[in-house]
């Protein structure tokens, strides 16, 4: 699971008011190279929750992202490459996503998060 996916997911258990961002429990993180696509990065820049992305990338062991950003930084190659790496190249291969409110764990195995709810959570 890429951090882009993590940035879009939240816990949707019944009764949970604020299920975002999910905490990440790391068992195994792998890096996979992805083609650099500047249009896509610019498209996504305004859509990600930056705080959650910076936090998540630190959790998986990449601390290069700045705390605060603004659109002017999109002109910097260095920044774009860091953003690209954090957003698309870091994979949580094994681990879990933890609901910030209830502590319910959504397992991530073989890179696929399992967001399905149990019968009594619907």
């Amino acid at each position: 699971m890429r951090l882009l996916t993590h940035n879009m997911l939240s816990s949707n258990i019944k009764g949970v008011a604020n299920g975002f961002p999910l905490k990440i429990e790391v068992v195994k993180v792998v890096e996979k190279e992805v083609d650099f696509n500047i249009d896509f990065l610019k498209n996504m820049f305004h859509k990600v929750e930056w705080k959650a992305l910076a936090e998540a990338s630190r959790t998986v062991g990449y601390a290069e992202l700045p705390e605060n950003v603004d659109a002017a930084m999109l002109d910097s190659d260095d920044f774009l490459h860091k953003f690209h790496h954090a957003l698309l190249e870091l994979h949580l291969e094994e681990g879990a996503l933890v609901c910030p409110e209830t502590g319910r764990k959504f397992p991530v195995s073989k890179g696929i998060p399992n967001m399905l709810l149990h019968e009594d959570e619907v």
Partner: peptide, 22 residues
Amino acid sequence: LPMPIGLLRADNNLPPWRSGLK
């Protein structure tokens, strides 16, 4: 082709996307 950027197991009836994003 470039692989999908994300695949997940989810239910379309209760999609796990953060609500309305932002």
